[in-house]
Structures are given as C-alpha cells and as structure tokens.
Design a protein around this nucleic acid. Structure first.
Ligand SMILES: [Mn+2]
Ligand SMILES: [Mn+2]
Ligand SMILES: [Mn+2]
Ligand SMILES: [Mn+2]
Lengths: 226, 226
DNA sequence: ATTCTTTGTTAGATTAATAAAACTTTATAG
DNA sequence: CTATAAAGTTTTATTAATCTAACAAAGAAT
C-alpha cells in the first residue's frame, strides 16, 4: 500500500547499511556486532536482530559469532545511500551556502528522502561532482566508488609539500578546528618539522608560517604529494 | 536519547496535523474521523487512536462521537508543517527548476526534515516568499497565515476579467491539464461566455481566444478581479 | 587448563503505528 | 417512530524497532 512495500529499505535499514559500509573500510570488509552497536548507539541484541533481517534480504552475510560482512548487493545499496548523503552535502555547501561543518546532520536526514528526481536534479545542478565537501568520493549511480590513493599528512616527512584533498574525521568539532586554522581542501602545506616525541608537526601554509598540528589532527588529513 | 524525545511530533503526527488543518478549512474547523481516515488512507480505528494521542498532547479537542477540532497549539504546529511544505515547494520550483506539477510529493517528505537552519536558509534564499508555487500562502515562523480573499473563477460573470492567483486542486493531473492549456499563476483571463446548462465557461487569455473550461476546472482556479 | 572478561545470542517486554472484527452510537429513510 | 445505514469505538492482533536480563561462546590472563 505505502511506498515501502517493494525492495526498498527503511530509513533505519539504510543507516545500518551505511554504518556497515563505513566500518568495514578499515577492517577488510569485516565488522563486529559490538562496533556496529557502538557506532549506531544501538544495543547489541537489537543489532543482532537487524543483521538477521538484513541477511534475510541478502544484504549481509550473517553467521552466529562470526564477523559481519555486506554482500555485493548490500555494498551497492550502502553506496547508493552514501551517494545521496554526499550529493546532499555538496548541494548544501555549493548551492545553499552552508559551511562544510554544518551539513552532515542535515544530509543525515535528507539522504532518506525517496525521490530519485530530487537527487538527480542536485547531481545535475552540481554538474555531476565526484567528491563531497570533505573530499570523500561520491559513488556513481551504480554504487561504484572511485578510490583515491591519498596519504595521511601524518605519514609525510619533513620537507614534503602536499595539498589537502580530504578530511577523514568529518565531525563538527574537527571541521571548526580546521576553520580556526584556515585549513580547507586545496590548501598547500609544507612539513617544516616533525617532533619525534609525539609526532606533532610544525607546518607552514598560506599566511601561516609556523603552525603546530598534533598527530591526531595530522592523521585526519588526507593529502596529495607534489 | 534520540531527537524525538521532547515536544517534537513524529512524521506521522505531522501528517495527521496537516490533514486536520487542511480538512478543517472547508468545514469551519470541524473534521470527521471518517473524512480524516479517507484523506490519509488510514482506517478509522487507527485515526481514533491517534486522535486520543494528539488530544493527550493538547493538539486536538477530542470527544467520543464528536467532530474533531485542532486546538490553537495544534493549529500552530500544523501551520508550521505547512510552512515547511510550501517553502520546500517554492524552493524546488524557483531554485532547482522543477515544474509546479512535480514538487508536491518531494515536499511531502522534505517537510519532515528536522533542521530549522535548512528551512531558514531556503526562506532566505527565496527572499521570504509569501506564497508557494500554487498560490497558497506560506505561514510565517509563528504559524500565522495571511488569508487572501480571492474568488473562484466559477463565481465570475460573463465579461469579467481576472488574474489567476492560485489553484485549489494541486494534484499532478490537474496541474498537467493547466500546463496543456498554458494556464499558470498570473495569467489574465476574460470570461467570454458561461453555458447555463453545465456552467462550462468559454474564456480567452494570451494566445487562446476561445478555450472551454468545465465547471470542475473553474472551481479549482482562484482569481483576482480587475 | 581453569578462570575471568568480552562479545554475541536468546527470550521476553515495550512503544509506535497500523488493521480486522465486533460492537455502539448517531444519522437517515421510510 | 422504527429500521437500516453510516460513522465511530473497543478489543484484539500484527509489524518494526527498540530495550533489559539472562545465558552462551570466544578470547585473554593467570
Ligand atoms: Mn557526512
Ligand atoms: Mn541517516
Ligand atoms: Mn503541496
Ligand atoms: Mn508528509
């Protein structure tokens, strides 16, 4: 009767898929119930339940006590949700004038809107962007992602000159910190000195001849070497 | 824990409020459970249940077997949902290039997004519009509505010249019909002849010197006399 | 190897939104 | 005024998403 009768996933299912996709990136495709539970702030039994449901829908490989893995179908559907999220973020920044630190929560909701024309229109108005405002790739309409091979600033050596291409941590707080240091995508940074004790980096860029960036900050910045 | 713990209404509650508001317009504030049930395509027992819930939240005056009425609080919250809906429709048409016949279903979903900044931004980018793409007034931030005193085209007399200011029926089919006749808001129409038998009107406007509009069409067009 | 801790599952319960079936009240038509 | 029809309600049940408490498996530590 309603719009959710066919092969569509619910808003809740979409959030699980997205979380599985994201978490599986840094663990060669495997995710623990515990991690997923913490990431979504949902108790473990609820997650187990949902995994059985997603397994029944052929979106997740589920076996008791084994790590969770998305199926190919699951990966595709997750990527399509991420596509909607990132397109939305890009639209909010480029066409509506929001800051890159203001769009995540709004996109978190709009990503669940069931209106393909709406996302297609944003895509068109943005001229088919390949990355979102945080430098993350936007999956294409088939859910394919172009993985860019960038390195972390923390892996650079003294004397390296690099361009900031993406942020890994997209939390408001981190983005506001970057704003306060005038660091944004495209900024060209030179590593002046790397403190052996705690890996803090002294870097220079733009009008900033001597800025200290902690290891935790440097690990969250993806850069392209030049 | 989640975002819906405080005074917020759920998506479902918002749709009930909106329906109550709309239906109560043409019946001096009163709505029957039956009408609401049909309008929302939800069975009557479900509606009765929800009315008790909304009554507990002081949004609806509910007494067994009596017509439903929104409280002042209910009217305000309904108007604020309608505000989000109409602002969205206006944004979709004015800023994204959708047709007036394509935006209702998208707005039906986006109206439930919980992000005041988002709607405030649309409002700003649209320069605080007073009407939506169908000529309906957009309630202000306090939920106040400026009721325009327009008449139906069907109430006009032979020889009257009028400007189309709003459509009452905002269904896709009706809007597409108007598109096919090149009738849109702002078009100046002259009533050439009114058939006494079935109230069909022969009108002229723009490049159309002799167009026949059935009574049902004329009843759905609001006009301003000049 | 045995114990303890962490992780995961099962069982049972709750809340929101819905419907079907049965019943009651109000309205309408003879 | 009844008899019937329409509208509204109550009761019971279902589904999705969640939780707590109790239990079981896997992994770590001694
Ligand atoms: Mn985001
Ligand atoms: Mn989301
Ligand atoms: Mn509409
Ligand atoms: Mn809606």
């Amino acid at each position: 009767m309603n719009a959710y009768f066919c092969g569509m996933n619910s808003l809740v299912e979409e959030n699980y898929l997205k979380a599985l996709f994201t978490l599986s990136q840094d663990n060669n495709g495997e995710v623990s119930v515990n991690d997923l539970s913490k990431h979504l702030d949902i108790k473990m039994p609820t997650v187990t339940n949902m995994m059985k449901k997603l397994a029944a829908k052929k979106l997740v490989h589920y076996e008791s006590y084994k790590p969770l893995r998305l199926t190919e179908k699951g990966k595709k559907e997750a990527a399509l949700v991420i596509r909607k999220h990132r397109l939305t973020e890009m639209y909010l920044v480029e066409k509506m004038g929001f800051g890159w630190d203001e769009v995540h929560e709004i996109a978190e909701q709009i990503e669940h809107v069931r209106a393909p024309e709406f996302f297609a229109k944003m895509d068109e108005l943005l001229n088919y962007p390949k990355i979102d405002p945080h430098g993350s790739p936007i999956p294409d309409k088939e859910g394919r992602i172009e993985w860019n091979e960038y390195s972390k600033l923390s892996d650079c050596k003294e004397g390296d000159s690099v361009i900031v291409t993406a942020v890994i941590n997209t939390s408001d707080e981190f983005l506001k910190f970057l704003n306060s240091r005038a660091i944004s995508l495209g900024v060209r940074i030179r590593v002046e000195y790397k403190e052996p004790f705690d890996n803090t980096m002294i870097v220079s860029y733009g009008q900033h001849p001597r800025e200290a960036l902690s290891h935790i900050v440097c690990e969250s910045l993806l850069v392209e070497k030049i």
